[in-house]
Computed example of a mutant assay.
Amino acid sequence: MRLVQVAQHADDLERAAAFYSALLGSEPTAVFDPPGLLFFDLGGVRLLLDRNAPTAVHYLYVDDLAAAIERIGDRAEVIGPPHRIFTHEDSTLGPAGHDEWQAFVRDSEGNTVGLVSFRAVA
């Protein structure tokens, strides 16, 4: 079994497309409007922005938290600045010997998005 798609609520597909294009550094892979569906490819998993989906929190890996936040600029509100969550002692949840850092932003549609990055322990 593998994850195929994650859905997130979006009222305005054009605004959501601008936000996620800036965050992900890529354009949508498909738009079907009507009925109000916008897709992005996240390494083989579809991110669906859907007018009828409920809100959810999804976490996206980024190489650099500060750069990701800078890319989205004023399209989002930072609601949790970058901070260290914990150190990965083994590779169960992430790369061993790395700190996991996260930041939280409110996307253009009012949803919370977690941004995750790993830094080698010095």
Rank of each mutant, 00 (worst) to 15 (best):
L115Q: 05
E100D: 05
D99W: 09
R2D: 13
A18G: 11
W101C: 04
A68Q: 00
E14H: 11
E70A: 15
D12N: 11
G73P: 07
A76I: 01
D99R: 02
G94R: 09
D12T: 03
E109C: 15
F118E: 04
L93K: 07
V78G: 02
P54E: 07
L13K: 01
L3A: 07
E89H: 13
D50W: 04
G43S: 04
Y20N: 02
L49S: 03
V113S: 05
L48D: 00
L13S: 01
A17D: 02
T92F: 13
Q102F: 10
P81V: 00
D12L: 09
D12I: 04
V78C: 04
E100R: 06
T112Y: 01
E14P: 04
I85C: 12
D64A: 12
P35M: 06
D99T: 02
Q5S: 13
R46H: 15
M1H: 13
D50A: 05
G94L: 08
L48G: 03
P28Q: 08
L24A: 10
L60K: 06
S108W: 12
G43T: 00
T55V: 14
I72V: 09
R84N: 11
D11Q: 15
V57W: 05
D64S: 12
F118Q: 03
D74C: 11
S21Y: 08
D50I: 00
A53D: 00
I79T: 06
R84F: 10
P54A: 11
F118N: 07
T87K: 12
L3F: 10
R84A: 13
V116F: 04
P34F: 07
Y59W: 13
L60T: 04
D99M: 03
Q102L: 12
T87A: 13
S26K: 15
L93P: 02
A76Y: 00
D64K: 11
P28H: 06
Y59M: 14
R46W: 15
R15N: 10
A16G: 06
R106M: 10
